[in-house]
């Protein structure tokens, strides 16, 4: 009940004062914009064009500016130019303004000089130069300014910093200094040692779990062989046949013991895996 009453009160408030706002909001929506109530306070708005409203042009900006209580405005990636920014002059409650990735240049920034509530101004990848910064010197509340990928120089930055000491200017990195990671040459595949059954060098009694690796078993015999994995308790586990002159790609782990037998399951020899990918050649 209380909620319902509250709702009625809100509705009637809206109906009384804000028909002109409603027109502006409808126009914003027609242009693909999004109007959100700002958490900052009653009847304050956040307006976004960067997702669905990228076709917004200077003409559309005139309609937006009729909504006076815009606190945040995002025009990223839209088709606006400096000429359109004249309409923003009236939006003197703006605290955050996104103009990044538009064709805005120094001329347009002049229209922002009286938006003294601005705290955040994003101008990255616009056409501004040091000249634009001269228009920002009176924005005493400005705390964050973004100028990556513009022609603003260190001289301009120093100039503005001197006048607005509490401003942070984010210049970004120079992309020409990014060093790509060197591609590692693939290590040449080495061959696992063949330990013939009954030979001098004995394989371990069982496998131990370790890093993942891949082994290519290549059968050079003129007969098929059987492949067994010696498990963690020392028992052989059959994995498959490898025909004469053919190969099998096997996922395994380092320190695994693999046994090769003839078709009658008489052991012929063993391989012990290492960490690296390797070939295991079953000799003639």
């Amino acid at each position: 009940m209380i909620r319902f009453l509250l709702f009625l009160v809100l509705i009637s408030n809206q109906a009384l004062g804000q028909t002109s706002d409603q027109h502006a909001i409808e126009s914003i929506k027609r242009n693909g914009g999004l109007v959100l109530p700002s958490p900052g306070g009653d009847n304050q708005w956040e307006v976004q064009f960067q997702l669905r409203g990228r076709n917004l042009s200077d003409a559309g900006l005139a309609d937006i500016a009729k909504l006076k209580n815009i606190i945040e405005l995002n025009l990223r990636d839209t088709k606006i130019t400096s000429d359109g920014l004249i309409h923003l002059k009236e939006l003197n409650k703006l605290t955050r303004l996104h103009l990044e990735r538009t064709n805005v240049d120094d001329k347009g920034i002049a229209y922002l000089k009286d938006l003294t509530k601005l705290q955040y101004l994003n101008l990255y990848k616009t056409r501004i130069t040091d000249k634009a910064l001269e228009h920002l010197t009176e924005l005493k509340n400005l705390r964050q300014l973004y100028i990556w990928q513009t022609d603003v120089t260190d001289i301009g930055i120093a100039y503005l910093k001197k006048r607005l000491p509490s401003l942070t200017i984010i210049k970004g990195i120079d992309l020409s200094t990014v060093i790509p990671i060197k591609k590692k040459e693939p290590k040449p595949e080495h061959d696992l040692k063949w330990l013939p059954n009954g030979g001098n060098e004995k394989p371990p009694e069982k496998s131990v779990t370790g890093e993942f690796t891949i082994i290519r078993f290549i059968n050079k015999r003129n007969k098929a062989v059987k492949l067994f994995w010696i498990d963690y308790s020392g028992k052989p586990k059959f994995y498959g046949m490898i025909n004469s002159e053919s190969e099998r790609r096997q996922n395994t782990y380092e320190d695994a013991v693999w046994m090769i037998t003839n078709e009658q399951e008489m052991p012929l020899g063993y391989f012990v895996t290492g960490r690296d990918f390797a070939r295991a050649i079953i000799p003639k």
């Binding site: 955040y120 990255y124 990556w148 984010i170 970004g172």
Partner: peptide
């Protein structure tokens, strides 16, 4: 190290980090 640092750099210079 590289990926996360790049993300933080990138978000910051695009004005997205805050």
């Amino acid at each position: 190290d590289r990926a996360v640092s790049a993300l933080l750099t990138d978000l910051e210079m695009r004005g997205m980090l805050d």
